[in-house]
Computed example of a mutant assay.
Amino acid sequence: MNNEKMNDYTNYLVNWIKEEVKNANQKGVVVGISGGIDSAVVAALAKLAFPDNYLVVWMPCESSELDLKCKNELVNNLNLKNIVEIDLLNTFNGLKSEIINKTNNENKLAMANIKARLRMTTLYALAQSNNYLVLGTDNACEWHIGYFTKYGDGGVDLVPLVHMLKRDVKNAAKLLNVPASIIDRAPTAGLWENQTDESEIGFSYDLIDDYLEGLNVPENVKKRIEYLHNISSHKRQLATKPLKSINEI
C-alpha cells in the first residue's frame, strides 16, 4: 500500500472511530499501550479522532526495560498528554499465586494470559468511568489466526486495525510518527521473558501477510495458518448460545 493510499485509509479510520463513538452515545476512546507497534498506531489514531477525549493507558506487568523505553519514546513523539499508568504486577502475582495454591496447577500460557485479562478489566473500568469506548490493537494477521487472548486483548469495542496486514501497520506507523525503535523491534505479546510473536507462531508475519494477500507460501505454512484459523473461530464470536429456545423443544 503506497503512502497516499495509507494516508487516505488512516483518515478513514479516524472518521470511522468518531462515528462509532457517536453511534454508541459515548464521548471518546481509551487504548492500552505496550511499547509495541500495533498499540502505538491505535494510540495515534485515538488522539487524532478525539484530541481532548482520549486516554492512553500504560499497564506494566513484568514489562521489560525495552517496553518502557519504547513507551516513553511514543509518548514524546506523539505528545500524548492524556496518559495514566496502572501497575498490575501486584494484582497479577496475587491472583496467580491464589490460583496455583488452590488448584496445584500452573499452566504457563493460562497464567500469562491473566495479564491480558487484567488489562482488559482495567481498560473497561476507565472506559466506563469516562463514557469512552475501548479500542483494540489486533491486526489482520493476529485476528485471522486467533493470536490474541479471548476476553483479554480480544475483549474490546472497536478493532480499527483488523483489516491491516502487519506490513500495513508498519507503513501506517511511519506516517503517524511512531518511533523507529517501535517499528523495528521484534513483535512481542510480552507474555514471558524473551517471548516473541513469530517464535511462538512458528513463522514470520511476512508469510501470514503473503497468505492473506493470496500469494504463494510454503504448503506447511498454509496448512498451519488454516489450522490456527479454524481452531480459533470461537475467539472471533460472542459466547455460543443453544440453537433452540425452550419453546422450540
Rank of each mutant, 00 (worst) to 15 (best):
Y205F: 12
C141P: 03
A127M: 05
G190C: 08
L191W: 09
N130W: 08
D153K: 01
V169W: 03
F203V: 05
T137N: 02
N177M: 08
Y151K: 09
V162N: 09
L176H: 10
D168L: 02
L165T: 10
H144E: 11
A127Q: 06
K174Y: 12
L191D: 05
T137Q: 01
Q128R: 15
Y147M: 01
P187C: 03
T122I: 07
S129V: 02
N171F: 06
H144L: 03
E198T: 12
N139S: 06
N130R: 14
L158I: 15
T149N: 00
G190I: 03
F203D: 05
P179Y: 10
L133D: 01
I201D: 08
E200P: 10
S129M: 09
R185H: 11
T137I: 05
N171H: 12
L126Y: 15
A116V: 06
Q128C: 13
L161T: 08
Q128K: 15
A186P: 11
A127I: 08
I183V: 13
A189T: 08
N113Q: 03
A140K: 13
I114C: 01
R185Q: 14
G146D: 09
E142N: 07
I114K: 01
N177Y: 12
D197P: 07
G154A: 07
Y147R: 01
Y151S: 05
C141M: 02
Q195A: 04
H163N: 15
F203R: 07
I114V: 10
K174N: 11
T188P: 02
L123C: 03
Y132W: 06
R119P: 03
E142R: 01
G202E: 11
A173T: 04
A172D: 02
